[in-house]
Structure formats: C-alpha cells, structure tokens
C-alpha cells in the first residue's frame, strides 16, 4: 500500500517536474527563435521597411532580389565547393591529431604529462603574428596553395582540453586496467575502449572544428589570392563589399546600368541577411546527424564490463 502511495506521489511530482521543464524550454526556444524568424523575414523584405520596424511579424515589400543577386554570382558555387572540401578534409585532419593527443593527456600516470599539456596550452596564448607566420608559410610553399586551409591549424588547444576532460571523466580507469590485465597494449586500448566510448565527444569536437572551418575566411584572405580557391565566407564577404561600393563605379555608365547599381546598393542590407541563410544551410543540415551521438542513452549497451 505504502509503495503505491509513493508511486503516486512520484508521478505527480514527476509530472510537475516535466511540466516545468517543457515550459522553460518552450519559452527559451521561442525567445531564441524570434530573431531568427526576423532574419529570415528580413532577407525577403524591402530593407527600408525592415529598418522602420514594419517586418516585426510578416514580410513587407516581399522580394527575391537579394537571393537572386547572390545566386547569380559565379564565385558562390566555387565558394561552396571549396568550403566543403576544406571542411571535410580539414576536420578529418584536425580530429586525427586532436583525439589521440587528448587521449594520451588524459592518462594521469604518464610522465611528463604536465609539460606536454603546457606545450599545447601556450599555443592558445601566444602566436607569432601575421608577418612571421606568412614568411614561414611561404617557405613551406603554402601561400596560394589551398592546402593551407586544411593543414594550417593543426590542433586547437581549446578543443583538445575539452576532449581530454571528457576522456578523464567519462571513461573509468577500471576499464583500462581490466584491458591491461587482458594483455591489451595502449594503442589497442585506445581503439577498442576509448574511441567507442568517446562517441559523444568526437561528435562535439567534430562539430566545433567543422564550424570553425566552414566559417573561416581570414586565412584565405591572407594566403589565397586567386578567387578560385576562396571559401564561401570570403566569397560572400566580397559580394557584400562589391555591392556596397557600387556607387564608386558610376561615372560614365548608361542609365539602366546606373539604376541597376543603385538597386544593388539599396539591396545590400537585405543581402546581409540572405547571405546568412545561404551560408548556414549545410551546417543546419549536418547537425541532426551529429546530434544523435550526444543524446541521452546513446551509451546504453556500449559499455562492456
């Protein structure tokens, strides 16, 4: 009898708990979603109406012009392709370096661990600066070479520390000890025990690196002069700059062209929003695939003891 009462009480408090959770999450999601919605609406609306606050709920002066202007640009397609290549290969390269390093540094009994940590940590705080890095990269043959986007940033100390932390807290030492007793070498341990259990963090760090690679443009700006190597973000940035300064080209052109240039300048504000939509699509599509690796319960059944 007492047990039934307990269960009823648990159900009620559990339901209240659930209700609170759902309520909070809903409110948060709505608050966060609104500016996103605003950005989407703004990318299809007349820029002046947007700035005057007329597009708070719905489009005003609906137009596809910003998107048309962006899509017509030839460097857009090559930008997409380049960014995809840089992202896929670059992320793979980063992960192959970061995860082993994180694993190794998670072993508390490794001699020299502290020094190696510091070796990586320092890179977060000091860098050579633009000129020395450029001169050195030139020596390595990386200037005007698309490889620079893949190979340039090897290990992010930040990501490595986060991954290391995961290895330390989520994989108990007992598992390693058991494997050692069974005669497994450390590398075998890494592949058989650590990696399968590290799926959530691998997913997260992959996401971190992929996002960084997808968004990067400064390295390309400095090292990749030819437009054919440009990543998407740089191409989009260029499109915006060109349209903003269209006025400078307006001497001695025909009326239709002048009207066209004026229209481009006018539309730049809406294009800023459209640009985000264009650039974000792959990452948004990519996310659900990664997301399932850190949902609750993904680890059930994967731990053997």
């Amino acid at each position: 009898m007492a047990k039934n009462k307990n269960r009823i009480r648990m159900d009620r408090s559990s339901r209240i708990y659930t209700f609170i959770i759902y309520a909070l999450v809903t409110v948060t999601t709505l608050v966060v979603a609104y500016p996103l919605y605003f950005a989407i609406v703004a990318s299809f609306s007349d820029p002046n109406a947007v700035a005057m606050g007329d597009t708070v709920f719905w489009f005003k002066g609906f137009t596809l012009e910003p998107y048309q202007a962006i899509i017509k640009e030839p460097i857009l397609l090559s930008g997409y392709r380049n960014s995809l290549i840089y992202m896929v290969f670059g992320t793979a390269y980063n992960m192959m370096l970061t995860i082993p390093a994180a694993y190794v540094l998670s072993k508390k009994n490794l001699p020299g661990r502290k020094s190696i940590m510091w070796y990586f940590l320092i890179t977060m705080y000091v860098g050579g600066g633009l000129i020395p890095t450029y001169l050195w990269y030139k020596q390595l043959g990386l200037v005007n070479n698309p490889l620079v986007m893949i190979v340039g940033q090897g290990v992010s100390a930040y990501n490595m520390i986060v991954a290391r932390q995961f290895f330390m807290t989520s994989i108990p030492d007992s598992l390693y000890e058991a494997a050692e007793i069974d005669g497994a070498s450390e590398i075998k341990s890494f592949f058989r025990i650590a990696l399968p259990l590290a799926k959530p963090i691998i997913a997260v760090i992959t996401l971190y690196y992929a996002f960084a690679k997808w968004n990067s443009y400064y390295a390309a700006l400095v090292y990749l002069r030819p437009q054919k190597y440009w990543p998407l973000q740089l191409a989009l940035r260029q499109i915006l700059i060109t349209n903003e300064s269209a006025f400078a080209d307006m001497s001695d052109i025909s009326n239709t062209d002048a009207d066209f240039m004026l229209r481009k300048m006018y539309m730049v504000r809406a294009m800023k929003y459209a640009v985000i939509m264009v650039a974000s699509v792959p990452m948004l599509v990519f996310y659900p695939f990664v997301q399932k690796y850190f949902t609750k319960g993904v680890m059930i059944g994967s731990v053997k003891e």
Partner: peptide, 29 residues
C-alpha cells in the same frame, strides 16, 4: 612502458611545432 602513448602524441606535437612554434620567433617584434 608508455612508448605507445608517446607515439600517439608525437604527430600532434610535431604539427604544432611546425605551424605554431616556429613562427613564434616573430613575437620579438
């Protein structure tokens, strides 16, 4: 005993040395 671990961490350290530590001499600017 831990030579395999050192091996695993060798390449990350190498790339960091190559791409980050070498240009560090420019810090003296």
């Amino acid at each position: 005993r831990h030579w395999q671990l050192y091996l695993l961490v060798f390449f990350p350290m190498l790339t960091v040395f190559l791409f980050h530590y070498i240009p560090l001499w420019g810090l003296q600017i």
